[in-house]
Design a protein around this nucleic acid. Structure first.
Lengths: 235, 235
DNA sequence: GACTATACGGACCGCCGGTCCGTTTCGTAA
DNA sequence: TTACGAAACGGACCGGCGGTCCGTATAGTC
């Protein structure tokens, strides 16, 4: 092999840290209450080890997250019908979002930890980029271009907002029609907006503060998604 | 007025702190790089003063935010047509969201600071609750109930996600139709989902990383909103 | 001008993320 | 089996931050 050792203990420790971190996050009320020292201690590992292998706190959280979400990612990339690439876009979009939501419900604290992982917004992480990409492409393959839905509405909305006028910023001429006809940009933004509806802190809030059941949240999201995809409703 | 002094200097300091904090957040790349010491120094005030008047970092950020968004809140509560209570719901919803988006574009860093203000999610703040409430009520006054839109889609999505199956959670029977017919709950969730599309970190990402112009973002959001409100499209 | 309630400010504390470096261990090859 | 070097280890250590505490200064009152 000649590509150096790989050191068994390094692997073992890596695994131990991943497991320990996952458990600690799952148990704790807030990700903030889990310190790196806690994780190191729980994993039976020195702090230095932890930072050498994962770089920083964000790196560690990302790796734990990746490890946990890998099966789902696999199912999306090469799995069967509703989630996999073979599914009809019209079915796949809701399936993707529901699957992601389920994951966030099942791994609420871990997802929360990832989203508020200090350095850089969640949007800079590889995971978000991946989901956004899949969703964007699937949206783009939808039969009826969704853009047609909101011609008048969009224009109207914007004119109105222009008249809102609060502080004199540089945005005086409200003619945001630019881009409305751009299908690709439209799907791009829609993907962002749909993913935003599954944000971990929102999910956390709905469950813990509003007392909504996972079931209910999923039902609401499904309804919402289908409304966004609409247009065939008049069929 | 016999209700004690009020001490002029206290008021003056309070104002100084608010101003200094606002400026520092606006200037800095990340809210995290603005420490309480920085703010105290910039305001020409002792750290103790700062904490006595605002409780903690989150409290300070909230007050700065409230102060800045007050005019908009006022416009929504008792202003004229598109934003005010007199507007037709169909027009008011896009107007509200566009106004909020504009605010977040104009006060990106402050909004970001508020959202990641450590203790408690942004959803626990009074400001979010207020916006959610206004939006929810306005949605509920919409002419055509939006619920009808997503029957089949929802059920399907759930069956599919069930088959994903990662860890054996307690959510085995996917029958999320429960709640779909509840108009109030529907508007409640829709309000959350729409507000999520204006999250400060998303806006920040779209502007800084994707290089989108404020105009374009507003146009995209307007399109998106109009699609969510759809149903009259078949008119 | 004296008196008191209130506000002030900065030294101080505990904690945390991250670093450093002397020590240990793994894997290899003689 | 032993010797050796690379790689990993671990915990003392550091700078900085949010937050507290208390002796001091001052605005307002009589």
């Amino acid at each position: 092999m000649a590509e150096r050792k790989a050191r068994a203990d390094a692997l073992r420790n890596r695994e131990a840290v991943l497991t320990a971190a996952d458990e600690l996050f799952a148990r704790s009320a807030s990700p903030r209450s889990v310190s790196m020292d806690d994780i190191a201690a729980a994993a039976g590992v020195g702090k230095g080890t932890l930072f050498r292998r994962f770089g920083d706190r964000t790196g560690l959280i990302r790796e734990v997250f990746e490890a946990r979400i890998e099966p789902l990612r696999h199912a999306v990339e090469e799995g069967p019908a509703p989630l996999g690439p073979s599914a009809a876009p019209r079915d796949r979009v809701p399936a993707l979002l529901d699957a992601l939501l389920r994951f966030k419900l099942d791994h609420r604290h871990l997802s929360l930890a990832l989203e508020e992982s200090g350095s850089g917004s969640p949007y800079e992480g590889a995971s978000y980029a991946w989901w956004h990409n899949v969703l964007r492409e699937t949206l783009q393959r939808l039969p009826h271009p969704p853009e047609a839905a909101g011609r008048a509405g969009a224009a109207e909305a914007d004119e109105e907002s222009g008249s809102v006028e609060k502080d004199a910023d540089g945005c005086t001429t409200p003619d945001p029609r630019a881009g409305v006809l751009d299908r690709a940009a439209d799907c791009d933004f829609t993907a962002h907006a749909l993913l935003a509806a599954t944000r971990a802190d929102l999910v956390e809030y709905l469950v813990d503060q509003e007392g909504m059941t996972p079931h209910r949240i999923r039902a609401q999201l499904a309804t919402y998604v289908s409304r966004v995809l609409s247009e065939d409703q008049a069929t």
